[in-house]
Amino acid sequence: MKKFIFSAAACIAFVCLIQTQGHAQFLKKLKDKVAQKIADAAGVPANTTNSTTANSQPGTGINNSSNNGGPANTMGGGLKNTPPPDVNQNINDAEKATGTADYNGARYALQQAMTGLEIELGRQLIQSLPATVDGLNKDTAKNLVQSTQYGWSNLIIQTAYSDGKNKQLKMTIGNNPVYAGIVNMYFNNAAMVQSSGDNNQKMKQVRVKGNQALIQFDANTGYQVLMQLGQSSMITWDCVNFPTEDEVMTTVNTFDIDGIKKTMGEQ
């Protein structure tokens, strides 16, 4: 009997607790709806009227997650896309600064000149690439030239070709002795390029216009060809939705490797 009374009391307490929670949630939803209606009537976005509620109600569709309870930013056009540094101007500035023993100014101007040069070189290179390969058109929206100022150590030039659907070839030319060395590591390590003998080869050595390269396949990302370019550069081609290895190799062989080498100052 005692056990029954205790169990009943526990059940009643549990139901009350659920009801209290449900009641609180219902009130909160009601409060949010009222706030939303008032905001709509006033023509003000709801997330600016009650940010505390928005923060405490994830999943309500109110986007206020980035400002820690403060007002959400709704204005501003972002940063201006400034042109690359003027190479001639910065060379002149570096010379002048050195003449007045302003070495910090000189170093800064030289770094700027280098950035300007790398960006100009990258753009030239992208422009020199064919407009179409294997029926895929160059997607200019995916062009990218990135320079880190530190002396030819991390220049990235990237472009992509696409059929507008799901077939894509992304070409990346990078100048970084560290990455380039990694490809060499593959060439010099037989264990990394030989088949395991189970007819499931994932990587092998190939040649692209006489240059040593590697081709690998991954079911999720497709084919990838990596080629060392001269002493410190590397080209990668990421081929998504290419049906065969032969088609990949034919496509990458259409690029003017010697021209790219010449532009990059490689031998």
């Binding site: 050195t98 030289l110 770094q111 000149a113 040069l117 070189l121 030819w152 100052g265």
Partner: peptide
């Protein structure tokens, strides 16, 4: 000759 100019600037930075 952009790559040559680049090399010259790199050398200039080292001289600096």
């Amino acid at each position: 000759k952009l790559s040559d100019a680049h090399f010259n600037i790199e050398q200039a930075m080292q001289e600096l």
